[in-house]
Amino acid sequence: MNALDSVILRTTTRLLLPVLAFFSIVVLLRGHNEPGGGFIGGLIAASGVALYAIAHGPDRARRLIGPDPRWWLGLGLTLGITSAIPGLLSGAGFFAGLWVSAQLPALGTLKLGTPIWFDAGVYVVVAASMLAMIFRLQEH
C-alpha cells in the first residue's frame, strides 16, 4: 500500500497528528482516575502515526518517529522495568510506588509517581509495537 494520492488526506492527517498525540497523552495521564491509561493512550498515538503513514507512506512516517520502532520498543520496556528501581533503591521493594506532588498554577495539585512512569512505558511499548507491525505490513 502506498501513500494515497490525496491532498486532503495528507493535510488532514498532518493536522490530526498533533491532536491525536496530545489526546493520547491526556488519556495516558488521566487513566489513573478515569477510564483510560497507557494502553489506550498508546493505541491512540499509534493510530495517529498510522494514519499519517497511510497518507504519506511508511517512509515518511518512519522519519517522523525518528528511530526504528524496535528502538522505541526497547525504550518502552526499559521504562517499564526501570519504574521498579526507585522502589528497590528506597528499600520499599521493587515496583513499590513512590509519589511526588507538584503545585501547578491553575491546574491544582499534580501527583506524579512511579506507576505513571510505568504507564508511560506501557504507552511507548504499545505504540511502538503497533507501528512496527503496521509499517512492515504496509511495506510488505
Binding site: G31, H32, G37, G38, P69, R70, L73, G76, L77, G80, I81, S83, A84, F95, G97, P115, I116, F118, D119, G121, V122, V125, V126, A128, S129, M130, A132, M133, R136, L137
Partner: peptide
C-alpha cells in the same frame, strides 16, 4: 494494572513487544 499488579502488565507489554518482533 499499573500498581497493585504491575508485574502482570510488565509481562503483558513484553508479550506485545515479542509479537511485534515476531511479526517483523
Amino acid at each position: 494494572i499499573v500498581d497493585f499488579r504491575a508485574l502482570d502488565t510488565l509481562g503483558e507489554i513484553t508479550v506485545l513487544a515479542i509479537a511485534a518482533l515476531g511479526v517483523l
